[in-house]
Each structure stands twice: as structure tokens, then as C-alpha cells.
Amino acid sequence: MRGADRRTLLADAAIGVLADAGVRGLTHRAVDAAAGLPVGTTSAYLRTRQALLTALVRRLVELDQGELQVMGEQVAVRSAAELAAGIALLTDRRLTGEGRRRSLARYACAVESVRDPELHEILVPRENAGRAAVRAFIAGQGVADPDERTTTLLACVDGLVFDRLVGGGSVRADEIEGLVAAALRPSGGAVG
């Protein structure tokens, strides 16, 4: 196995360890075990805890960006209902199966990034086809500040995902529809 492939395998295993065992459980030995590799392999490729965390965060961003890119390319947004349906699909993916594990790891890394400028820089939201599709739809509805509304809408969706990861349950369709309606409300519109 090539070095780059081994690093990806280790980063993927680290995501799983972090999701299952938390920050304290993220050790080189735990990653070795999760990857099914001999003890010391992770240390050979990612010498320090910082190197391990950095590789893990870079992999999380790579996976998330890939998912959002594909979704943005595949989901046509022609109405508020289609936008809400696309967001519902994303929230479901983030709360179930491997998406749930990645979400748990992502939030643990977000907390770590508060004290770690390198991790913080890696986790800064990036442009992708999903974000662009949301912004284009909002702009197409005549909303004066589509960039700000897009950021706010996606942050609110992220908050719902976090809330359901911690408290259980799923994000309801009416919650997403309400967020989309708020994003499309004309500036200065009354909050209902």
C-alpha cells in the first residue's frame, strides 16, 4: 500500500475512533487497532497527536466537500420545496450511519479548533456546489443579501444536526421548511 493510501486509511480509522471513543480515546494505538494495522504504524506515518488530528480533520473536510459537491451537482433547486428536500437529505445523511460518525468527529474537531489555529483554518467553510446551489436559489428569489442568508441558513441547519446528535431524533421537515422560509423572507421582514 502506498504512503498516501496508508495515510488515508489511518485518517479514516481516526475518524471512527474519534466518533466512537471521543477525543481522549483518540490515540495512535487505537487508530492502529481500528485500521487493523500493527502497533506503531500510525506513529510511523503521523508522529505526533497534532499530526494525527490534522490528518483526521483534512480527511473530514475532504469527505464533506466531496459529498456537498456531488449533492450540489445532482440536486436541482427550482423551488423552496426542492431546497428543503435537498437539505432534508443532507441532514438525514449527517444523522445516520457513517454520516453520523463523521458528524460526531466533525463536532469534536470543531471544539478542538477553538484552541488550535491550524485545525480552525482547515475547518473554515469552503465553497462547493451545494453551497453555491443554495446561494444561487436564494439570489434568484430576489433576496438582497444571498451570501449572508446562505451562511445563516446553513449554520442553522448545522445547529439542528448538532442538536439531534446530542439529544437524539431527526430533523423534521417543517423545521427545515421554516428555515428556508426565513432565508427567503425579504430583508426587514417581520419574524413570525
Rank of each mutant, 00 (worst) to 15 (best):
G169R: 14
G86E: 03
R24I: 03
V17Q: 11
A30K: 09
V171P: 09
L119E: 09
V157A: 10
A33N: 13
A139Q: 03
A4W: 04
A19I: 06
L89P: 05
G188T: 10
A133E: 12
L160V: 01
T150W: 08
R102M: 10
L153F: 01
S113K: 04
L179R: 01
Q141M: 12
G192H: 06
L153Y: 01
A76L: 12
A144P: 12
A133V: 10
I176K: 03
L60W: 00
R6V: 01
R59T: 09
A183E: 03
R101K: 15
G86C: 04
T48N: 10
I176W: 00
D5E: 12
L165C: 13
Q141E: 15
R49F: 01
I122T: 12
T152L: 15
A108D: 07
R94W: 14
H28T: 12
L165K: 11
L90Q: 08
R126Q: 10
R94Q: 12
A173V: 06
R106W: 15
A30R: 13
A88N: 09
V61T: 14
Y107C: 11
G3F: 00
I122L: 12
D20E: 13
A129Y: 07
A35N: 09
E175M: 08
I15F: 05
A84Y: 01
G3M: 00
E177N: 04
C109F: 05
R59S: 02
D20F: 00
V134W: 09
A80V: 01
V124E: 15
R126M: 02
S187Y: 03
V180E: 07
A13G: 13
I122H: 07
V111C: 12
R185V: 02
Q65S: 14
L153T: 02
G188A: 05
A21P: 04
T150Q: 06
D12V: 00
E118V: 15
R149G: 03
V77T: 06
G36K: 07
C156V: 10
V171H: 05
D158T: 10
S103E: 07
A81V: 14
G169P: 00
V191C: 08
A136I: 02
V171E: 06
A110H: 13
G86D: 06
V77C: 01
A76G: 15
E112H: 13
A30H: 14
A155H: 13
N128H: 12
A85P: 10
V17A: 11
A182E: 10
Q65W: 07
E177D: 08
